[in-house]
Amino acid sequence: MSNKSNSKIVVLFKRFERFWHWAQALMILLLLLTGLEMHGLFELFGFGSAVETHNLIGFVWTGLVVLIYTWILTTGEWQQYFPTLKGVEGTLRFYLYGVFKGEKHPHHMTPDDKFNPLQRLGYIAILFGLLPLQVISGFAFYFFPDLRAAGVIGHVDLIAILHTFNAYALLSFVVIHLYMITFGEKLSSHIKAMITGKEKIEE
């Protein structure tokens, strides 16, 4: 359907970006599994092992998040996340209507503008909202006994509720995120791009 001469292959996701994406994916998956087990929803690793694993991964993940932020800020990638309302309506219209009519995605992907306006909004909320909130509430959770001893906070309930709420929000994101990767040119295009970094884009 498309003329081959009109498209070219570009590197959309850089090596470190791919690394942090997959490392984070693995860690969030494990954090969700262990965290929800600790929340009493199922038994998998055993409560004690779940706590140990969760705490360990939590600290490693915190380190990774710091690296991710550094990378995003120093490489200018932050511009990819800069929110815009322009095109939000068109993107929404596509997902709610156009896609069923066989329309093409309205967003033209380029290495400098790889996220559509909805993704920009979503990722800025996740990366700079939910993730740091989860890290911070996780730290408060971990150091709660010390905070209580120091008289800073008496009960863990608010921390726990916030952390759990955030966890559900992230899990919900993961579910939708996994579906959204099927919106490439082919079903597997996006996942391939996140593995190899390369995506075919139209000029």
Binding site: M38, H39, G40, F47, H155, V156, D157, A160, I161, T164, F165, A167, Y168, A169, L171, S172, V175, I176, Y179
Partner: peptide, 28 residues
Amino acid sequence: DFYLIGRDSNFWVELFGLLAVVGGLLGI
């Protein structure tokens, strides 16, 4: 008189979780 991890949960957070995760799944 305290929040115990694994035993306790907040009704609204659980409801949100159910809607967000199961709702998300049904939606997709």
